[in-house]
Design a protein around this nucleic acid. Structure first.
Lengths: 281, 281
DNA sequence: GTTCCGCATGAATCGATAG
DNA sequence: ACTATCGATTCATGCGGAA
């Protein structure tokens, strides 16, 4: 009775949708849930103090749905609340561990183009957490798939940049992502670190994904093989699904907002011929 | 009776030493305490499960000693324990808030040249937390002191560089965070973000300081004025003290290891003429 | 085909004002 | 007192049009 909606967008509440999925069935979960009190227009806007209790039932279902060797990558960042960083993300990690999740690693997504602004007591926030959770200590990982070029190319780049402010331009050198990867073919390669340098994609396009496609792409390369199934329970405009298809994987996207579902459908129809949207579980 | 040992290294247990300090007396605390189970030779090696209860009495004394408008910068990173990131840093943040600390911000120190190595299920760890705590929402902060050149400026400058400029700058690579460049910049400066790109220092073979001088320097510039007092309760080889003196501030260093005390004394004697070491409180 | 310039656009935060 | 809304502040990026 429980059947997995492969290569589909489900326009419905994610907790309800997840309960219709069979256990141990997806290989990777990559998602960026609505941050507390952010995107109030599209989503309800969860108060920071209520965030943990709102998310825990969902993470319990995700635990059930994930394959034993799969990974769950949670992109999240705590808001400033009354002058302090709120602790809901810290609490969430500890509560998820009580659900059985292993907190394997915390990757840093360094946002090279972060939101501008000036305040008397803080600087611009240029990073977000990408928390890696697992069900077992042994999980699927393909480190060679995300190796970054090094050697003479990087060194010559470093030399050229040395007269510029190092502190600002290291990121460009160290970045293993972006569009000139094709230039690196045939070069020597090294393993990356747990710091990812990526710019947000926000330009004059119709859709504005704050989640750049290169982010899910990187984790898809790292944690899955061809034809594996990738789930995004808060799909938004569909960046994870798009990354999955482009990488030769299968996707399942869940999104409660009809507007975002149509947007995601539009993006997906450009790369696939089959019908992708389902209006409910 | 309680008197502050200005410009001194106290070779003693830090909890004991701190109790001899008057309240509300230091302007900035920057420290990198021994990591759980790390540096076993120098320190006892605190078990991850015991870390929070070990640190809380110390953070309580630090709270007492810090001026109301001062800041506390805690450089820390959780180690991997049984395949997971341990949660003692998360717990520590929440327990310190119960002591009255405000968790104002979490800076990321991106270690450009992180420790090499390869593991089957994780990448090299290239970042650490620099947690900023305060006693009040209003605290001293001098944002202009750490401004960096704008990206546009750096890019146009990169294009217009002559060969003379290129060769001239290579000798300056080791200078502090954005400092050398600031001389060259016109006025095109921007405020930095909460991500700091700094290389670790490994100049001396006998001691490999994980804590580069540029890191405390940056926070000293940001949070203090001339003649302010900077405390490092886990001084190690004295990078914070050195940064303080070089920036025209006063320092107090506490370190329990005699070997490190002598090492720090040696570094400090090169920049000051007065006797710096005290063998107990 | 390049390079260059102008411009819109963000997972933001604070402080003041209003209910 | 406590919450809701609004204006001011700020900068990296990529697109389109121009030279």
């Amino acid at each position: 009775m429980l059947k997995l909606p492969i290569n589909s967008i489900i326009c419905d509440d994610c907790l309800k949708a997840l309960k219709s999925f069979p256990a141990n069935s997806v290989d990777l979960i990559v998602t960026s849930p609505p941050y507390a009190d952010a995107r109030k227009n599209e989503y309800g806007g969860i108060h920071p103090d209520k965030y943990v209790e709102w998310f825990l039932p969902i993470s319990a279902e995700l635990f059930r749905v994930l394959k034993p060797q799969g990974s769950f990558v949670l992109n999240i960042k705590e808001r400033v609340f009354k002058g302090e960083r709120h602790t809901y993300v810290l609490e969430l990690i500890m509560k998820m561990r009580e659900q059985g999740w292993l907190w394997t690693e915390e990757f840093i997504w360094h946002k090279r183009n972060c939101y501008p602004g000036k305040w008397p007591n803080r600087f611009r926030d240029a990073w977000e957490r990408c928390l890696q959770f697992n069900k077992n200590k042994k999980f699927k990982m393909f480190q060679e798939e995300v190796m970054v070029p090094t050697g003479d190319w990087a060194q010559s780049r470093l030399r050229n940049l040395s007269k510029v402010d190092k502190t600002r331009d290291e990121s460009k050198v160290n970045s293993g992502f972006g569009k000139n990867v094709s230039n690196w073919v045939g070069r020597e390669k090294a393993y990356p670190t747990n710091v990812l340098h990526m710019a947000t994609e926000c330009s004059n396009k119709s859709h504005c994904a704050t989640f750049p496609v290169s982010l899910p792409e990187w984790f898809i390369d790292l944690f899955t093989e061809a034809d594996d199934i990738i789930l995004d329970p808060f799909m938004g405009s569909g960046s994870t699904a798009l990354a999955a298809i482009q990488k030769g994987r299968k996707y399942i996207g869940i999104e409660i907002s009809q507007e975002y579902c149509l947007l995601a459908e539009d993006r997906m129809q450009k790369v696939t011929s089959q019908k992708v949207i389902k209006w409910s579980v």
